[in-house]
Amino acid sequence: MSDPTENGRDNSGRFVKRAAESVHNLNTPSEDGIHPLSKILFGWTHRKGIGNIIFYVLMVLALAVISVDFFHARHEYLNFANYAGFYGVWGFVCFAFAVIMGWPLGHLLRRDENYYGDAGGPPEGIDPDAPMADDLPAPHHTSEGDA
């Protein structure tokens, strides 16, 4: 490694110490509450125009995987699965259908959070430091047996 000290004796010790320090730094969030590891792992999601990039990359990928079907025939037990692009189209249609059905179903089935009259806060035993999100005010139940 590029250790500046020429002193070869405690090289390994320093290395371990430095590794420990960097692991520690990696796990200590900065003041703004952002975990250093997240910058390494997911920093790319904050790039400008990342939405477009993902969109086009996926489009290219999709075209690439579907184009395989035009050069390569499959032999499946169910005939319709052999058509070129079957899996891609079916996956797309199903996904879109499930999501779009969310609109009418949401209107039909969504009710007020306290519809059953039992909405309440988080369960017992969560982190005492949890930043209680603005939830419905419902205390832990202190009912008597004959409630």
Binding site: G51, I54, F55, L58, M59, L61, A62, V65, I66, V68, D69, G85, Y87, G88, V89, W90, G91, F92, C94, F95, A96, V99, I100, G102, W103, G106, R110, R111, D112, E113, Y115, Y116, A119
Partner: peptide, 26 residues
């Protein structure tokens, strides 16, 4: 093919704002 097209559907729906938003409620 199945997965990438499905993910692409997600991105597409998000892009055109047809993905239903998360709302509170039961």
């Amino acid at each position: 093919q199945l997965l990438i097209f499905a993910i692409f559907a997600f991105v597409l729906l998000k892009r055109f704002h047809v993905y239903p938003p998360e709302k509170r409620g039961v």
